[in-house]
Protein backbone atom coordinates (compact mmCIF):
# COMPACT_ATOMS: atom_id res chain seq x y z
CA UNK A 1 0.00 0.00 0.00
CA UNK A 2 1.50 3.38 -1.02
CA UNK A 3 1.91 6.07 1.62
CA UNK A 4 -0.91 8.60 1.47
CA UNK A 5 -0.01 12.10 0.31
CA UNK A 6 -1.99 13.77 3.05
CA UNK A 7 -2.76 12.15 6.36
CA UNK A 8 -4.56 13.61 9.35
CA UNK A 9 -4.42 11.37 12.39
CA UNK A 10 -6.76 12.16 15.27
CA UNK A 11 -6.24 15.88 15.01
CA UNK A 12 -8.06 18.32 17.23
CA UNK A 13 -7.79 22.05 16.87
CA UNK A 14 -8.56 24.63 19.52
CA UNK A 15 -8.34 28.38 19.24
CA UNK A 16 -7.64 30.22 22.46
CA UNK A 17 -8.53 33.88 22.37
CA UNK A 18 -6.37 36.35 24.34
CA UNK A 19 -9.22 36.56 26.89
CA UNK A 20 -8.85 32.83 27.48
CA UNK A 21 -11.99 31.73 25.67
CA UNK A 22 -11.56 28.43 23.86
CA UNK A 23 -13.21 27.58 20.55
CA UNK A 24 -12.83 24.01 19.44
CA UNK A 25 -12.85 23.89 15.65
CA UNK A 26 -12.06 20.21 15.08
CA UNK A 27 -12.25 17.13 17.26
CA UNK A 28 -10.52 13.80 16.69
CA UNK A 29 -10.55 14.10 12.94
CA UNK A 30 -8.84 11.60 10.68
CA UNK A 31 -8.54 11.88 6.95
CA UNK A 32 -6.36 10.30 4.34
CA UNK A 33 -5.82 11.36 0.75
CA UNK A 34 -3.89 9.15 -1.67
CA UNK A 35 -1.74 10.34 -4.49
CA UNK A 36 -3.81 11.67 -7.37
CA UNK A 37 -7.02 11.56 -5.35
CA UNK A 38 -9.65 14.22 -5.70
CA UNK A 39 -11.28 14.57 -2.32
CA UNK A 40 -14.17 16.93 -1.68
CA UNK A 41 -15.15 18.10 1.79
CA UNK A 42 -18.67 19.27 2.56
CA UNK A 43 -20.02 20.33 5.89
CA UNK A 44 -22.11 22.95 7.65
CA UNK A 45 -20.66 26.43 8.04
CA UNK A 46 -18.19 26.83 10.89
CA UNK A 47 -17.47 23.10 11.13
CA UNK A 48 -13.74 23.56 10.56
CA UNK A 49 -13.24 23.04 6.83
CA UNK A 50 -10.95 26.04 6.38
CA UNK A 51 -9.15 25.10 9.57
CA UNK A 52 -8.45 21.63 8.17
CA UNK A 53 -6.81 23.09 5.09
CA UNK A 54 -4.86 25.52 7.25
CA UNK A 55 -3.37 22.64 9.20
CA UNK A 56 -2.17 20.92 6.05
CA UNK A 57 -0.33 24.08 4.98
CA UNK A 58 1.13 24.47 8.51
CA UNK A 59 -0.34 27.97 8.71
CA UNK A 60 -2.45 26.89 11.73
CA UNK A 61 -0.93 23.86 13.47
CA UNK A 62 -3.22 21.38 15.26
CA UNK A 63 -3.50 21.36 19.09
CA UNK A 64 -3.21 17.57 19.28
CA UNK A 65 -2.78 14.84 16.70
CA UNK A 66 -0.51 14.51 13.73
CA UNK A 67 -0.63 15.92 10.21
CA UNK A 68 1.57 14.24 7.62
CA UNK A 69 2.28 15.41 4.10
CA UNK A 70 4.15 13.04 1.76
CA UNK A 71 4.54 10.72 4.74
CA UNK A 72 6.38 13.25 6.90
CA UNK A 73 4.97 15.37 9.72
CA UNK A 74 4.44 18.92 8.46
CA UNK A 75 7.09 21.40 9.42
CA UNK A 76 6.86 24.65 7.54
CA UNK A 77 5.23 25.40 4.23
CA UNK A 78 5.72 22.72 1.62
CA UNK A 79 6.56 24.20 -1.80
CA UNK A 80 4.45 21.50 -3.46
CA UNK A 81 1.26 22.84 -1.92
CA UNK A 82 -1.03 25.25 -3.71
CA UNK A 83 -3.81 26.93 -1.76
CA UNK A 84 -6.76 28.86 -3.15
CA UNK A 85 -8.05 30.93 -0.25
CA UNK A 86 -11.70 31.35 0.64
CA UNK A 87 -11.33 35.11 0.90
CA UNK A 88 -9.82 37.37 -1.72
CA UNK A 89 -6.06 37.09 -1.48
CA UNK A 90 -4.75 38.64 -4.69
CA UNK A 91 -2.38 41.56 -4.25
CA UNK A 92 -4.32 44.78 -4.85
CA UNK A 93 -1.21 46.77 -5.86
CA UNK A 94 -0.25 44.36 -8.64
CA UNK A 95 -2.03 44.07 -11.96
CA UNK A 96 -3.34 40.75 -13.22
CA UNK A 97 -0.21 39.57 -14.97
CA UNK A 98 2.10 40.56 -12.11
CA UNK A 99 -0.21 38.84 -9.64
CA UNK A 100 -0.04 35.62 -11.60
CA UNK A 101 3.72 35.88 -12.19
CA UNK A 102 4.56 36.39 -8.53
CA UNK A 103 4.80 32.70 -7.60
CA UNK A 104 7.57 31.83 -10.08
CA UNK A 105 9.35 35.09 -9.19
CA UNK A 106 9.30 34.17 -5.50
CA UNK A 107 10.73 30.83 -6.49
CA UNK A 108 13.66 32.38 -8.30
CA UNK A 109 12.58 32.59 -11.95
CA UNK A 110 13.63 35.75 -13.76
CA UNK A 111 10.90 38.30 -14.40
CA UNK A 112 10.70 37.94 -18.19
CA UNK A 113 10.31 34.19 -18.05
CA UNK A 114 7.76 34.39 -15.25
CA UNK A 115 5.71 36.90 -17.22
CA UNK A 116 5.68 34.64 -20.24
CA UNK A 117 4.37 31.78 -18.14
CA UNK A 118 1.87 34.13 -16.50
CA UNK A 119 0.55 35.38 -19.85
CA UNK A 120 -0.24 31.80 -20.77
CA UNK A 121 -2.08 31.18 -17.52
CA UNK A 122 -4.00 34.42 -17.70
CA UNK A 123 -5.26 33.26 -21.08
CA UNK A 124 -6.14 29.82 -19.79
CA UNK A 125 -8.36 31.20 -17.04
CA UNK A 126 -10.09 33.39 -19.61
CA UNK A 127 -8.68 36.77 -18.62
CA UNK A 128 -6.90 37.62 -21.88
CA UNK A 129 -7.18 41.35 -22.46
CA UNK A 130 -7.23 42.12 -18.72
CA UNK A 131 -3.50 41.63 -18.14
CA UNK A 132 -2.95 45.21 -17.03
CA UNK A 133 -6.06 45.68 -14.93
CA UNK A 134 -5.74 46.06 -11.19
CA UNK A 135 -7.84 43.80 -8.96
CA UNK A 136 -10.24 46.61 -8.01
CA UNK A 137 -11.09 46.94 -11.70
CA UNK A 138 -12.18 43.29 -11.92
CA UNK A 139 -15.37 41.58 -10.85
CA UNK A 140 -15.34 39.16 -7.90
CA UNK A 141 -15.39 36.17 -10.21
CA UNK A 142 -12.51 37.51 -12.26
CA UNK A 143 -10.46 38.07 -9.12
CA UNK A 144 -11.10 34.45 -8.19
CA UNK A 145 -9.77 33.38 -11.57
CA UNK A 146 -6.63 35.43 -10.97
CA UNK A 147 -6.22 33.55 -7.70
CA UNK A 148 -6.60 30.22 -9.54
CA UNK A 149 -4.00 31.15 -12.16
CA UNK A 150 -1.71 32.36 -9.37
CA UNK A 151 -1.93 28.94 -7.73
CA UNK A 152 -1.83 26.75 -10.84
CA UNK A 153 1.24 28.43 -12.29
CA UNK A 154 3.34 26.84 -9.52
CA UNK A 155 2.16 23.39 -10.67
CA UNK A 156 1.45 22.15 -7.15
CA UNK A 157 1.43 18.45 -6.35
CA UNK A 158 -1.14 19.10 -3.64
CA UNK A 159 -3.97 21.44 -4.37
CA UNK A 160 -6.06 22.77 -1.50
CA UNK A 161 -9.09 24.75 -2.57
CA UNK A 162 -11.43 26.55 -0.20
CA UNK A 163 -14.76 27.17 -1.94
CA UNK A 164 -12.94 28.43 -5.02
CA UNK A 165 -15.95 28.68 -7.29
CA UNK A 166 -18.51 30.05 -4.83
CA UNK A 167 -18.34 33.55 -6.32
CA UNK A 168 -18.71 32.48 -9.95
CA UNK A 169 -21.84 32.46 -12.09
CA UNK A 170 -23.23 29.07 -13.14
CA UNK A 171 -21.74 29.05 -16.65
CA UNK A 172 -18.29 30.20 -15.63
CA UNK A 173 -18.36 27.78 -12.76
CA UNK A 174 -19.12 24.84 -15.05
CA UNK A 175 -16.33 26.02 -17.33
CA UNK A 176 -13.84 26.34 -14.49
CA UNK A 177 -14.85 22.94 -13.08
CA UNK A 178 -14.13 21.34 -16.44
CA UNK A 179 -10.82 23.22 -16.62
CA UNK A 180 -9.96 22.13 -13.08
CA UNK A 181 -10.57 18.47 -13.92
CA UNK A 182 -8.39 18.59 -17.02
CA UNK A 183 -5.64 20.40 -15.10
CA UNK A 184 -5.91 17.90 -12.31
CA UNK A 185 -5.44 14.94 -14.64
CA UNK A 186 -2.58 16.78 -16.34
CA UNK A 187 -0.73 17.76 -13.15
CA UNK A 188 -1.50 14.43 -11.43
CA UNK A 189 -2.15 16.50 -8.31
CA UNK A 190 -3.91 15.39 -5.16
CA UNK A 191 -6.79 17.71 -4.41
CA UNK A 192 -8.79 18.63 -1.35
CA UNK A 193 -11.72 20.68 -2.46
CA UNK A 194 -13.94 22.38 0.11
CA UNK A 195 -17.40 23.37 -1.02
CA UNK A 196 -20.94 23.96 0.17
CA UNK A 197 -22.36 22.63 -3.06
CA UNK A 198 -23.09 18.88 -2.83
CA UNK A 199 -23.57 18.52 -6.59
CA UNK A 200 -20.26 20.21 -7.25
CA UNK A 201 -18.59 17.88 -4.78
CA UNK A 202 -20.01 14.76 -6.44
CA UNK A 203 -19.38 15.97 -9.96
CA UNK A 204 -15.71 16.64 -9.31
CA UNK A 205 -14.48 14.24 -6.67
CA UNK A 206 -13.45 10.61 -6.28
CA UNK A 207 -14.52 10.83 -2.68
CA UNK A 208 -16.83 13.13 -0.76
CA UNK A 209 -16.20 13.56 2.95
CA UNK A 210 -19.03 14.90 5.08
CA UNK A 211 -18.07 16.72 8.28
CA UNK A 212 -20.32 16.97 11.30
CA UNK A 213 -21.26 20.37 12.63
CA UNK A 214 -18.61 22.19 14.66
CA UNK A 215 -16.43 21.07 16.32
CA UNK A 216 -16.13 19.00 13.19
CA UNK A 217 -15.14 15.43 12.69
CA UNK A 218 -15.59 13.07 9.76
CA UNK A 219 -19.21 11.96 9.77
CA UNK A 220 -19.24 9.87 6.64
CA UNK A 221 -17.31 9.35 3.47
CA UNK A 222 -18.65 8.38 0.03
CA UNK A 223 -16.70 6.94 -2.87
CA UNK A 224 -17.93 8.37 -6.13
CA UNK A 225 -17.83 5.63 -8.75
CA UNK A 226 -18.69 7.88 -11.71
CA UNK A 227 -16.50 7.22 -14.74
CA UNK A 228 -13.54 9.41 -15.71
CA UNK A 229 -13.05 11.56 -17.66
CA UNK A 230 -16.25 13.22 -16.57
CA UNK A 231 -18.35 15.78 -18.26
CA UNK A 232 -19.26 17.92 -15.30
CA UNK A 233 -22.47 19.30 -16.78
CA UNK A 234 -23.70 15.91 -18.05
CA UNK A 235 -22.78 13.79 -15.03
CA UNK A 236 -25.39 15.31 -12.78
CA UNK A 237 -28.30 13.74 -14.66
CA UNK A 238 -27.26 10.11 -14.15
CA UNK A 239 -29.19 7.80 -11.83
CA UNK A 240 -26.10 7.16 -9.68
CA UNK A 241 -25.46 10.86 -9.23
CA UNK A 242 -28.95 11.59 -8.03
CA UNK A 243 -28.84 8.69 -5.61
CA UNK A 244 -25.54 9.85 -4.08
CA UNK A 245 -26.69 13.40 -3.90
CA UNK A 246 -29.78 12.30 -1.94
CA UNK A 247 -27.69 10.29 0.52
CA UNK A 248 -25.20 13.09 1.18
CA UNK A 249 -27.94 15.64 1.44
CA UNK A 250 -29.65 13.47 4.04
CA UNK A 251 -26.41 13.25 6.07
CA UNK A 252 -25.87 16.97 5.94
CA UNK A 253 -29.44 17.83 6.77
CA UNK A 254 -29.16 15.97 10.06
CA UNK A 255 -26.10 18.08 10.89
CA UNK A 256 -27.64 21.40 10.05
CA UNK A 257 -30.82 20.74 12.05
CA UNK A 258 -30.61 21.93 15.63
Amino acid sequence: MPTPVIELINVSCKFVSPEGKITQALREMSLCVNEGDFCAIVGPTGCGKSTTLGMITSLSPPSTGLVKVFGKPVAGIDPNIGFVFQTDAVFPWKNVIDNVAIGPIYRGKNAAEAKKMAADWVRRVGLAGFEHHYPHQLSGGMRKRVALAQTFINEPKILLMDEPFAALDVQTRALMQGELLSLWSELKASVIFVTHDIEEAIALADRVVVLSKGPGTVKSSYDIPLARPRDVSEARYSEQFIHLSKQIWHDLKNEVQI
Binding site: T57, L59, I77, P79, I81, G82, F83, F85, T87, D88, A89, V90, F91, I102, G103, Y106, R107, Q150, T151, N154
Partner: peptide, 15 residues
Amino acid sequence: ADRNLIANAYILGAS
Protein backbone atom coordinates in the same frame (compact mmCIF):
# COMPACT_ATOMS: atom_id res chain seq x y z
CA ALA B 1 -1.04 44.39 6.63
CA ASP B 2 -3.63 41.79 5.62
CA ARG B 3 -2.82 38.40 7.24
CA ASN B 4 -4.42 36.67 4.31
CA LEU B 5 -2.16 38.30 1.76
CA ILE B 6 0.88 37.42 3.85
CA ALA B 7 -0.25 33.80 4.13
CA ASN B 8 -0.89 33.69 0.39
CA ALA B 9 2.61 35.02 -0.34
CA TYR B 10 4.20 32.38 1.90
CA ILE B 11 2.24 29.62 0.16
CA LEU B 12 3.23 30.93 -3.25
CA GLY B 13 6.82 30.47 -2.18
CA ALA B 14 7.98 33.77 -0.68
CA SER B 15 10.74 34.00 1.90
